[in-house]
Simulated assay, not measured.
Amino acid sequence: MGERLHDPWLVAVWPGMGTVAMGAGYYLMAKLGMHLWEELPARDLFEVDHVDVKDGLIQVAPLPRSRLFLWKDPQHHHDLIVFIGEAQPTAKSALICHQLIDLVVPLGVTRVFTFAAMATPMRPGDHGRVFGAAIDRGTLARFKDLDLTVLEGGQINGLNGVLLGVAAEQGMQGGCLLGEMPQLFSQLPYPKASLSVLEFFATLAGIKIDLTELESHAQDVEKKLETFLTRIEQAIHQVEGSTESAVPQPDEDDDEKKKPKLNAEDRQHLDQLFAEAKQDRTRAYFLKQELDRLKVFREYEDRFLDLFKSPGGA
C-alpha cells in the first residue's frame, strides 16, 4: 500500500433492504473524499449466470464489482477503509469475507463494522432508531453508552452478518449498525435510516461528516412517504369493508417507471455535475442523487467511481 494508517477501521456495505447500507456507504465515501485503494477479483467471487440481450444481440453481463476506498483522518482518530460490494455472492459468501479480512489485517485493522436495515411497524414521520449487535463486549458497552438500541436476539442475514462472524474468529472488534425503517416501505430507498446510521457511526468513530445533503434528502423522502401513507389510510377508511387487498406503490414510483430515456439536456446536466464533483468530491453525493433520480446510476457507475481513483481532491 505504501501508506501507514492510523488505527484504521473497516466499514463494509452490500445491497439490502431500503438501500440503507449502500446509501450510507456511498455517502461516507463521497463526503470524506475517499480514493479507490483495491478491488477484489470478480471472477473469484461470482459466476456468470445470465447474459443480456440488446437489439437482438447477446451480450455477456458484467460481473458485480467489489471495491475498497480509503480515507486518512486528518485528526488522526481513525482512518477508514470502506468496502462497497455491488452484490452479495450466493455461493461464496465466506470466501469474500475471508479475502476481505485477510486483506485488511496487515494494515492494522482491528475493528470491523457493517451497516444494514431493521424493518419495524414505525411510520415515516417517527424518530428512527439505530439497532446494534457487537462482536465483543467492549464495543457492546460503547453502544450502550451512546444509547443505541441493542439487538437482543434474532439473526443478521447476508454478508452483513457473515463478515462479522469471520472477524470474530480473528479476534477483532466491531459490530453491525442497523437503521430502522418502516416495514410497509421496505422495498423502497429509505435515506432516513442511512442518516441515522451515519450519525451514530460518526459519534462512535469520533469523526466529522457533513450530513446536510443526506438530511435534506431524507426529509424530502420522509414527507412523500408520510403523505402517501396518510392518503392510503384515508382511502381504506372510505372503503371500509372492501375486499380489495392490493396496496399501490407511491405515485413517485409510478412516475419514475414512465420516465423516458435521458435526453440531451439531462446528459449535459450530468456532465456538468461530474465536472463539479471532479473538482470537489464532496459534491459527489448530490451527483449520485441525480443519477438515482434519473434511474441511470448503473449506466454511469464506473464513471462515478472513477472520481475516487486517486488521492487528493476535497
Rank of each mutant, 00 (worst) to 15 (best):
M1F: 11
E3Y: 14
H6I: 15
D7I: 08
D7V: 08
D7F: 12
L10K: 13
W14C: 00
W14V: 00
G16T: 00
M17A: 02
T19G: 00
A21C: 02
Y26G: 08
M29A: 10
M29S: 10
L32P: 03
L32A: 10
L36E: 09
P41E: 12
A42R: 11
A42I: 09
D44H: 08
E47R: 15
E47F: 15
V51H: 06
V53R: 09
K54E: 12
D55W: 10
L57Q: 14
I58Q: 06
I58V: 12
Q59W: 11
P64D: 01
R65D: 10
R67Q: 12
P74L: 01
Q75R: 08
Q75Y: 05
D79M: 09
D79F: 08
I81D: 05
I84T: 15
G85C: 04
A87S: 14
A87K: 15
A91L: 14
A91M: 14
I96N: 02
I96Y: 06
I96P: 02
H98P: 01
L100P: 07
P106W: 06
P106Y: 07
L107S: 01
G108F: 06
V109D: 07
V109G: 05
F113K: 05
T114S: 08
T114G: 06
A117G: 01
A117I: 00
A119M: 00
G125H: 13
R129C: 03
R129Q: 09
V130Q: 02
G132K: 10
G138H: 13
T139H: 04
R142V: 13
F143A: 06
D147H: 15
D147E: 15
G153A: 13
N160Y: 07
G161Y: 10
G165Q: 04
G165D: 01
G165C: 02
A168H: 04
A168I: 00
M172W: 04
M172Q: 06
G174P: 04
M181R: 02
F185N: 01
S194V: 02
V197A: 00
L198I: 07
E199R: 07
F200W: 08
F200C: 08
L204M: 14
L204P: 09
A205N: 11
G206N: 04
K208T: 13
I209D: 08
D210N: 14
D210Y: 11
T212H: 14
L214W: 07
H217W: 11
V221F: 07
K224S: 10
L229W: 11
L229V: 03
R231E: 14
A235M: 13
I236F: 00
I236N: 01
Q238E: 15
V239N: 15
V247L: 15
Q249A: 15
D254K: 12
K258Q: 07
K259C: 01
A264G: 03
R267S: 06
D271A: 07
Q272Y: 09
A275W: 01
E276C: 08
R281P: 13
R281I: 11
R281Y: 14
T282E: 03
A284T: 05
K288A: 03
K288E: 04
K288H: 07
Q289T: 01
D292F: 03
D292W: 02
R293N: 06
V296W: 12
V296Q: 09
F297D: 10
E299Q: 11
Y300V: 03
R303G: 02
R303T: 06
R303S: 03
F304R: 03
D306V: 08
L307Y: 07
F308R: 08
F308M: 03
K309I: 07
P311H: 02
